[in-house]
Amino acid sequence: MPTIVVEVMPKAELLDPQGKAVAGALHRLGKSEFTAVRIGKRFELTVDGPVSDDLLADVRALAENLLSNTVIEDVISVHMLDIETIPAGGTH
């Protein structure tokens, strides 16, 4: 079944304490090449039937109005899952 992916990130200018904690863990593991970590959200919306342009427009609106709070987050991407096939182990 078709799946629509919505990706949301905390606004760049806001402190991301969760990401900061992970960055601290990486540093303690000796992975000092990573200078920062930010953590966002990925939603996968499964659709029963074809995805029309209207439906995609609906999802874009929902991404702004429900799935994210634009005061504190940005919608990074709204896209179909099948156009995003990254081969396992492949470079990106």
């Binding site: 905390p10 402190l15 304490p17 969760q18 900061k20 904690a21 709070n69 005061v71 504190i72």
Partner: peptide, 17 residues
């Protein structure tokens, strides 16, 4: 109330975590 847009701004995780 902020999520319902009855008040402005937002509330985020405490800065100290």
């Amino acid at each position: 109330l902020v999520e319902a847009h009855l008040l402005p701004g937002g509330l985020v995780r405490n800065d100290h975590g």
